[in-house]
Design a protein around this nucleic acid. Structure first.
Length: 820
RNA sequence: GCCGAAGUGGCGGAACUGGCAGACGCGCUCGACUCAAAAUCGAGUUGGGUCACCCCCAGUGCGGGUUCAACUCCCGCCUUCGGCACCA
């Protein structure tokens, strides 16, 4: 009768039943409170790894818990299916990306089903599906119409291995985010999205994201990199302006030179026909030859050369020399920087190297700096000196005054700069959504008319060449008619960065089969924003920034009524083994399929949740998984051995203890999930309840056990375990005679009045050291408790005849007798 | 260099608002059951003081401090990890 716990059989059975019943299908809008739980969708690489298991299990617990708490839950799954690996495989093995992608998706979908994740599979989507990427293209056209997509010739990041350009966010330490090849620079004409137009809002709205980890918010803040300052106009002999940008206008009087970026067009103007011409030109050539990575490293030696020309300081009228130097960036500020050696570390090093004057104008409190003898720049605030009418002013206060004066005198203007750059989205690759633009031989670039979308990928292309998209060789794809003059036109052959595909997919889930629009307005406004988003920290400034940008654009276009897509964000840690990320090269990869086969999905899920809180890295352990399996087996035996006992209706102290423990467990698991997402401690609490139940059984012969209390506690246990171990819970629920699915049960509620015992154990300390324990009725008054404690032999012993100076009492918890 | 997080038994981790440090689990040791093994069950498991017992001392990266009481708060360091890094 009490068959063995055999997870494989049991799990397969229930997965089929759930699918048949459509148990996890999303309810219609308007019925009950909505809850949108989303985990970042995967790239269909071919096989799920432990990181996926962890990710999607965490999401599943959140989704299941909310369902049981009465929410109408949207918990969808899809595939970020465009991308390089499929195309690389095509080149290597001549499998078409469409085919390998379909195969991979089928395989991984089956894996996720085996994990028992409660997805609404009816809403599945894949970004490579024409029904999806049609709307990705539509989104591009929307951006284009709103002036947010433009074509520009610029020096761009090029990955030689991927043979394509990359966005700034996709270059990590000068290397490609995907293949880690060193990125080089190329001058190309490409499509960009004007994310910089949204810099201020992307920054300001970070403060709305209280449900995001501080870490991610700070990373985005740094990435956007706002600087508030002043653009001040220095002038050349002929009156030509040379504006500089500074955030330290309080140091303007300390300027002893200005520096121009080597790429700056002004350089040529300055040196033409002058003695320094040849030398400066040689210097510029050398600087340009240095790699971007090298140039932009703080460690690179600062080098420069004097142009032989001077500029006039707008406030002092002084002549200052103009230099060219490798540390000045062309694409930030004005490409010209003022040099204040006394108050900037870089300028100081530069000035000392080339013998430029150092002129301190901000003095530390009670000190007087000397430009000749200073050993380092003084970069802190202080008192202004040698600064004309600003002398004696606090340098922080001077910032605003100088800015105002500069504006009033028309010598410059306040200015805000951001480090954020526009988003380069062209990719010279096949396996992506084609950019829906075409170029007419006569009248230039045009968007593809919306009714001609999608611009479909041509299937029959040759995957051989590197450096150009296979689409560029396809006559069938290239040929188009100009929508304006009906002349011959050529399609854009670049595809879009796949991060565009993923910058709006969370909207599509609201109405994934919609034919007429990317999403239905009512549905998208009902379901969004996502209540809980879960994913890796690696997307802190990639996907998470892009998605915020696109959401704001759609808001401005009146298509959605929210400005932020993700209310709460959980960044889960990696699954590691031996402290290192699992990877084939390290040989420490553990296959989820194998583990599920060995221990069952429930045990794997349970271990992965139990081993570590979700934000931390998790050390995989086969023995740990086995431990989880053992626990489930213990639950299995406990329930089956306890069914149908004759029972005894008496409720004595043992029954009261069991009931209290059960209520305490409900409370602990509920708050651990709801408030802290600490599933590890939630599971620990469930284990303690199981231990308590075994203790109750072992201490009472079967005939003495109270069947109804026991049954109630067991049912509660099974329901509490449902989000973590959905298959086992379902089976046991039915074996206990439960009606309907355990996953449709209302989450147990605890009775606060039953949480406390009638008696409590109070810790007794003498001078802060534990000396004894005392069991007293709960809520005992201070004086009475003090009397009891002082009467304890151990207390007397440690008092050693001395008198207590003070007695500290924490009711129901602790008494500390203080002697000094 | 700047910013952020973390440092607790052999291991993963717990201690939520300052109140019994080490919950829960893994591993290990011993025992029961067994012809034996596996499984299961029970006991123990921070270090030390001659660990039979009681008892005592020390102990949450290091050094100080506040407090009746500190893993928790404050000051100063060390280490590890992550992010940014010539942004004027």
């Amino acid at each position: 009768m009490n068959a063995k716990y055999q997870p494989e059989q049991l799990e397969t059975k229930w997965q089929a039943v759930w699918a048949d019943q459509g148990l996890y299908r999303t309810g219609g809008p308007g019925e009950r409170n909505k809850y949108y739980c989303l985990v970042m969708f995967p790239y269909p690489s071919g096989v799920a790894h432990m990181g996926h298991v962890r990710n999607y299990t965490i999401g599943d617990v959140v989704a299941r818990w909310h369902r049981m708490n009465g929410y109408n839950v949207l918990h969808p799954m899809g595939w970020d299916a465009f991308g390089m690996p499929a195309e690389n495989a095509a080149i290597k093995d001549q499998v078409h990306p469409a085919d390998s992608t379909r195969r991979n998706i089928d395989f991984m979908r089956a894996q996720f089903k085996r994990m028992g994740i409660s997805y609404d599979w009816d809403r599945e989507l894949a970004t490579n599906h024409p029904g999806y990427y049609r709307w990705t293209q539509w989104l591009f056209l929307l951006l284009y119409k709103r002036g947010l997509a433009y074509r520009k010739r610029a020096a761009v990041n090029w990955c030689p291995d991927c043979a394509t350009v990359l966005a700034n966010e996709q270059v990590i330490d000068g290397r490609c985010w995907r293949c880690e090849t060193a990125v080089t620079e190329r001058e190309l004409e490409q499509w960009f999205l004007k994310i910089t137009d949204y810099a201020e809002r992307l920054l300001a709205d970070l403060s709305l994201l209280e449900g995001w980890p501080e870490r991610v918010r700070v990373m985005q803040e740094h990435w956007i990199g706002k600087s508030v300052g002043v653009e001040v106009e220095f002038t050349l002999a002929g009156g030509r302006p040379a504006p500089v940008f500074t955030t330290r206008q309080d140091t303007l009087f300390g300027v002893t030179y200005i520096v121009v970026a080597p790429e700056h067009p002004l350089v040529e103007e300055l040196i033409a026909g002058r003695p320094a011409e040849a030398a400066v030109r040689a210097f510029v050539q050398r600087a340009k030859a240095q790699s971007d990575l090298f140039r932009s490293s703080a460690e690179t030696e600062k080098e420069g050369i004097y142009t032989g020309v001077d500029a006039v300081h707008p406030l002092t009228g002084e002549q200052v020399p103009i230099w060219v130097a490798n540390y000045v960036l062309m694409d930030y500020g004005t490409g010209i920087v003022m040099g204040v050696p006394a108050h900037d570390t870089r300028d100081f090093a530069f000035a000392r190297k080339y013998g430029l004057r150092v002129r301190p104008v901000i003095m530390p409190p009670g000190e007087r700096l000397n430009g000749e003898t200073m050993a380092a720049a003084y970069t802190e605030p202080g008192v202004m000196a040698d600064s004309g009418r600003y002398d004696g002013l606090d340098s922080v206060q001077a910032l605003d005054r100088i800015a105002a004066d500069v504006e009033a005198a028309r010598l410059g203007r306040r200015k805000v700069h951001y480090r954020l750059r526009d988003w380069l989205i062209s990719r010279q690759r096949y396996w992506g959504a084609p950019i829906p633009m075409l170029q007419c031989e006569r009248c230039g670039w045009h968007p593809v008319p919306e009714d001609q979308l999608p611009v479909k990928l041509v299937r029959d292309v040759a995957f051989t060449a590197k450096g150009a998209s296979p689409l560029a060789q396809s006559g069938e794809f290239l040929a188009a008619e100009c929508p304006s003059c009906r002349g011959k036109a050529r399609r854009e052959t670049d595809t879009m960065d796949t991060f565009i595909d993923s910058s709006w997919y969370f909207l599509r889930y609201a109405s994934p089969r919609r034919q007429e629009a990317p999403f239905a307005r009512a549905e998208v406004n009902h379901w969004l924003p996502v209540d809980q988003y879960i994913g890796g920290i690696e997307h802190a400034v990639l996907h998470l920034l892009y998605s915020r940008f696109i959401t704001k654009v759609l808001y401005d276009a009146g298509m959605v009524n929210f400005t932020e897509p993700f209310t709460r964000l959980l960044t889960q840690g990696m699954v590691v083994m031996g402290g290192a990320k699992m990877s084939k090269s390290k040989g420490n990869v553990v296959s989820p399929d194998e583990m599920i086969k060995r221990y069952g999905a429930d045990a794997v899920r349970l271990f992965i949740l139990f081993a570590s809180p979700p934000e931390r890295d998790l050390e995989w352990s086969n023995q740990g998984a086995e431990g989880a399996f053992r626990f489930l087996q213990r639950v299995w035996r406990l329930v089956l051995e306890s069914r149908g006992l004759p029972g005894n209706p008496t409720v004595g102290p043992q029954e009261e203890d069991l009931m209290r423990l059960t209520h305490q467990t409900i409370k602990r698991i509920t708050t651990d999930i709801r408030e802290r997402m600490n599933f590890n401690t939630a599971i620990a609490a469930a284990m303690e309840l199981v231990n308590g139940l075994y203790a109750y059984k072992d201490q009472n012969p079967a005939a003495r056990q109270n069947a109804s209390v026991l049954d109630w506690s067991l049912r509660t246990l099974v329901v509490l375990l449902a989000p973590f171990a959905p298959h086992l819970s379902e089976e046991l629920w039915h074996r206990l005679g439960g009606e309907g699915s355990v996953h449709l049960q209302r989450w147990p509620q605890y009775d606060a009045t039953l949480l406390k015992a009638a008696e409590v154990t109070v810790v007794v300390q003498v001078d802060g050291r534990v000396r004894d324990k005392l069991t007293v009725p709960a809520g005992m008054e201070g004086p009475r408790l003090e009397e009891l404690v002082l009467g304890l032999p151990k207390v007397a012993q440690h008092l050693d005849g001395g008198r207590p100076v003070r007695v500290v009492i924490v009711p129901d918890k602790l008494v500390n007798v203080v002697t000094r």
